[in-house]
Nucleic acid binder design. Structure first.
Ligand SMILES: [Mn+2]
Ligand SMILES: [Mn+2]
Ligand SMILES: [Zn+2]
Ligand SMILES: [Zn+2]
Lengths: 139, 139
DNA sequence: CTTGCAAATGCAACTCAGTTGCATTATTAT
DNA sequence: ATAATAATGCAACTGAGTTGCATTTGCAAG
């Protein structure tokens, strides 16, 4: 999955390759972890790309619809976005510096879902698992 | 844990027993599930107790400090509050009607935490687990 | 019961992430 | 080059939650 292929796929679907779109795809490809709208904005400035916040939010919506990124909620009042994951994974969140690390789990809860669904008469579609604590730097 | 004991404990600590405080404790005792500030407000109105939203938020802060309730994040843009839990538990969230059900889990992740902590050099303090799907009514 | 002090309250104005309407600009196909 | 329309910028808005400050209330001491 490289920049050119992704942009070419967008173009083929009839979407335009604007400077914002190209820059935001680069930002996500080069920062493989959850980013807030503000994080994205500062990364764009770093690439000398100045965009209005409305445009950033609209491009986030576009990239979500295209399943290039997904939205995640960490509970700190602002949404984060990360590359659409290849594999199911979860997150470690540092309560001190707010950094986020994606982790794969050996014993995944997907196995438990059937049991929980039956027991509670609730049709589980997905789950979210977050561990809060102190990262290597902060402990 | 009944209303009188809780209020008496607050009074003994030097806190006042205002109509808002008494009514909000009642609301949480009689609605044992996560409530938003708006939910609390409508429950209060139902008890013929009219309060300013600022007062509701300040009373929430008080009840959190007293460990009578805790705050939980469901990812829908507003915080929820529930009775301080006796036992560790998790939540089922209906994506259709937004209802929330608390569930106990047999195989809890607390067992996994040590492994994850060591593997990632991250000191886990707590975790949050939510299942999203359709409740009995909505499926 | 009265009084005084601090705790609790109401109100209006504010914050901040995210959204919306609309006029303007830029990308792409022809 | 041109036309169609996707994308953008801007200003104003939304909605949950917060803050400063003047006023009211609960409660304990006299
Ligand atoms: Mn991740
Ligand atoms: Mn619960
Ligand atoms: Zn950290
Ligand atoms: Zn439902």
């Amino acid at each position: 999955m490289n920049l050119k292929n992704i942009l070419e796929a967008f173009r083929k679907k009839g979407h335009r390759l604007t400077k914002t779109r190209k820059a935001m795809v680069r930002v996500f490809l080069h920062n493989n972890r959850p980013l807030s709208a503000a994080d994205i904005n500062s990364r764009l400035e770093h690439l000398a790309v100045t965009v209005n916040k409305t445009t950033i939010y609209r491009e986030i919506d576009f990239l979500k619809k295209e399943r290039f990124i997904r939205e995640i909620e960490l509970g700190d009042g602002m949404k984060r976005y990360e590359l659409w994951p290849d594999d199911h994974h979860h997150h470690l969140i540092c309560v001190e510096c707010n950094s986020v690390k994606c982790i794969d789990m050996e014993h995944c809860l997907v196995n438990e879902e059937k049991k929980i669904s039956e027991k509670n008469n609730f049709m589980i579609m997905e789950h979210s698992l977050k561990f809060f604590g102190l990262c290597a730097k902060c402990q």
